[in-house]
């Protein structure tokens, strides 16, 4: 029973973080039509910025806020400097087919990932360093028994819940959110309706950059920080997005929690070494049984 509870709690906490990663991927996929493989590289970079501030005497919260802001800024910069020119039809018309043209920004995101990791290695050296948590990572004690749930888990779930609620309100209850949903559905009609689609695109990169930076801040206290630490999170987040439906924010969150549970239960009941295998099995199952994802729409493109 105790093992079960521990697995459940740990799965919820991890799942919440993977939900954030998957949500970031889905927002850029919907807003810009790109699977952004650089996403967790961006998150790694802004977590390093927070780490530098904190080791130089700033409070955790200053580092926290700066990381979110620099995540948003880095996302916007990448869109404006790299993705926007690459998506320009006139400049890429030499490439034969539509699918080739669609692949270019995705390949570029892999290049960005490499560049960011190399740059982080140059600036901060490639060895692992710790990253602080804002709350205790020892379990609560109830009547002398250590519970499998920590104050940091509460912080993780709380901050992810706040992010999800804010994102939902933004997309459902504001005009800018409506503009972004419309742009994702039909860019041409959105343009004719007066939407500057370049701007909504950049905004989706910024939102995704901030939310994945939060994921970076929440992951690194237990994984430590190095240029490659967050690679696994991208893999899991991508799987979560595919399982839930790459074009569905709600699906991304659902997929994140499913992956969190699978990983946690495999870790507790089997062995951590089988986690990779389990992720792969989940991905394969999803692609065979329901390739468009649990909440994905019918006409979503397959990647």
């Amino acid at each position: 029973m105790n093992t079960f509870l521990a697995a459940l709690f740990s799965g919820t906490s991890r799942g919440a973080i993977f939900a954030l990663v998957a949500l970031g991927l889905v927002i850029v996929w919907r807003g810009a039509g790109i699977v952004n493989f650089a996403q967790m590289g961006q998150a790694m970079f802004s977590t390093y910025i927070a780490s530098t501030l904190i080791t130089n005497g700033s409070s955790y919260w200053v580092g926290f806020v700066v990381a979110l802001l620099s995540g948003a800024a880095l996302g916007s910069i990448l869109d404006v400097l790299v993705m926007r020119p690459l998506s320009n039809k006139k400049k890429t018309e030499l490439l034969g087919s539509e699918s080739m043209r669609a692949a270019v920004p995705v390949l570029a995101s892999l290049g960005i990932l490499g560049a960011l990791q190399a740059l982080a290695g140059i600036i901060w050296a490639a060895e692992e360093r710790g990253f602080p948590a804002p709350a205790k990572q020892e379990g609560f004690t109830v009547a002398g028994n250590a519970m499998p749930f920590t104050a940091f888990d509460v912080f993780v779930i709380g901050s992810v819940a706040v992010t999800l609620i804010l994102t939902t309100l933004f997309f459902k209850k504001t005009s800018m959110g409506l503009a972004m949903r419309a742009t994702a559905l039909n860019q041409e009609v959105a343009k004719l309706s007066g939407i500057r689609t370049n701007r909504t695109r950049t905004l989706s990169w910024a939102i995704s950059g901030a939310s994945s930076s939060l994921a970076g801040l929440l992951l690194t206290p237990s994984s430590n920080l190095s240029p490659n630490t967050l690679d696994l999170a991208l893999l899991i987040g991508f799987t979560a997005a595919v399982v839930g439906g790459l074009d569905s924010p709600a699906g991304a969150v659902l997929g994140g929690f499913i992956l969190g549970m699978v990983i946690s239960f495999v870790t507790f009941y089997d062995t951590p070494e089988d986690v990779f295998l389990a992720i792969l099995v989940v991905l394969l199952l999803a692609l065979i049984v329901r390739p468009r994802g649990i909440l994905g729409s019918k006409d979503a493109r397959r990647v």
Partner: peptide, 12 residues
């Protein structure tokens, strides 16, 4: 929501 989209909701 479709009709709202016609209202030039982000003035640019």
């Amino acid at each position: 929501e479709n009709v709202m989209m016609g209202a030039n909701i982000t003035s640019g």
